[in-house]
Simulated assay, not measured.
Amino acid sequence: MENIVLPTLTKHKSIPLAYMGKPTLMQTAIHYLTGYDFRQQHPYQANGVTHDARQSAFGLLNTCLTEMCCATGTQSYRGALVTADKVLAEISCASNGCEEDGLEPYVENVLDTFLQAITTRKVKNLPQYMKSLLWTSFATYKLNTISGITAPYKEVKNVYGLH
């Protein structure tokens, strides 16, 4: 699959709209952009031990992102009405045209936010919460990139002493 997907991502600098109807190709493209294969071979570590919660959240993120990109019709994420083509456009933007590090910096930001959220509140539907977070994080990530803020919000908050 990678032999089909990678040249297309490189050539078009985005995930083709045609992949919306082809979940296997979409999943391969998402996995490439998130560094999925690398994380399967080199799981997240904390003090030399696999960070199971982060690794599981990473798997959920990939599944949810693929589902969002293959969804038919309009979906609602935190009240926003979203179509799969809008998700693809945001992925292209967040991944800098599907080049360099792909979505990896974005993914790390989402994982930090997700893990913090599920440890501080009861989340009834983890996949739906992840999808809502992914959608709203596109805007947050873009704003942080534009403003030059690269650290997660909680770190920025501490730098300025805001509580």
Score class of each variant (00 low, 15 high):
residue 5 V to I: 10
residue 5 V to Y: 02
residue 6 L to S: 06
residue 7 P to Y: 02
residue 8 T to Q: 11
residue 9 L to M: 03
residue 10 T to W: 11
residue 12 H to L: 15
residue 14 S to E: 11
residue 15 I to W: 05
residue 16 P to R: 08
residue 16 P to C: 08
residue 16 P to N: 09
residue 21 G to Q: 13
residue 22 K to Y: 01
residue 23 P to A: 05
residue 25 L to E: 14
residue 26 M to H: 10
residue 27 Q to N: 14
residue 27 Q to W: 10
residue 28 T to S: 14
residue 28 T to Q: 12
residue 29 A to C: 08
residue 31 H to K: 10
residue 32 Y to H: 14
residue 32 Y to Q: 09
residue 32 Y to A: 09
residue 37 D to V: 11
residue 37 D to I: 10
residue 39 R to M: 15
residue 41 Q to N: 12
residue 43 P to E: 06
residue 44 Y to K: 00
residue 45 Q to G: 05
residue 47 N to R: 13
residue 47 N to V: 12
residue 47 N to P: 02
residue 48 G to F: 09
residue 51 H to K: 08
residue 51 H to P: 03
residue 54 R to V: 09
residue 57 A to H: 02
residue 59 G to V: 01
residue 62 N to I: 05
residue 62 N to M: 02
residue 63 T to Q: 00
residue 63 T to L: 00
residue 64 C to Y: 02
residue 65 L to P: 00
residue 66 T to C: 08
residue 69 C to P: 03
residue 70 C to R: 03
residue 72 T to G: 12
residue 72 T to Y: 00
residue 73 G to S: 10
residue 76 S to W: 03
residue 76 S to V: 12
residue 77 Y to N: 02
residue 78 R to M: 11
residue 79 G to S: 07
residue 80 A to D: 15
residue 82 V to D: 04
residue 82 V to T: 04
residue 82 V to I: 14
residue 84 A to D: 09
residue 84 A to M: 04
residue 85 D to S: 15
residue 90 E to I: 03
residue 91 I to T: 04
residue 91 I to H: 04
residue 92 S to F: 00
residue 92 S to L: 01
residue 93 C to T: 12
residue 93 C to D: 08
residue 94 A to Q: 01
residue 94 A to L: 05
residue 95 S to N: 03
residue 96 N to A: 07
residue 97 G to N: 06
residue 100 E to T: 04
residue 101 D to R: 12
residue 101 D to N: 13
residue 103 L to A: 02
residue 103 L to H: 02
residue 105 P to A: 07
residue 107 V to T: 05
residue 111 L to M: 07
residue 113 T to D: 07
residue 113 T to E: 09
residue 114 F to P: 02
residue 117 A to I: 07
residue 118 I to V: 15
residue 120 T to C: 13
residue 120 T to Q: 15
residue 120 T to W: 07
residue 121 R to Y: 11
residue 124 K to H: 14
residue 125 N to K: 09
residue 126 L to I: 12
residue 126 L to Q: 11
residue 129 Y to F: 15
residue 129 Y to A: 14
residue 130 M to D: 07
residue 131 K to W: 06
residue 131 K to L: 08
residue 132 S to Q: 13
residue 133 L to E: 06
residue 135 W to Y: 14
residue 138 F to K: 05
residue 138 F to C: 10
residue 139 A to V: 11
residue 139 A to H: 08
residue 139 A to L: 12
residue 142 K to E: 12
residue 147 S to V: 06
residue 148 G to E: 09
residue 150 T to D: 07
residue 150 T to Y: 01
residue 151 A to P: 00
residue 159 V to S: 01
residue 159 V to M: 00
residue 159 V to Q: 08
residue 159 V to G: 00
residue 159 V to N: 00
residue 160 Y to E: 11
residue 161 G to K: 05
residue 161 G to T: 01
residue 162 L to Y: 15
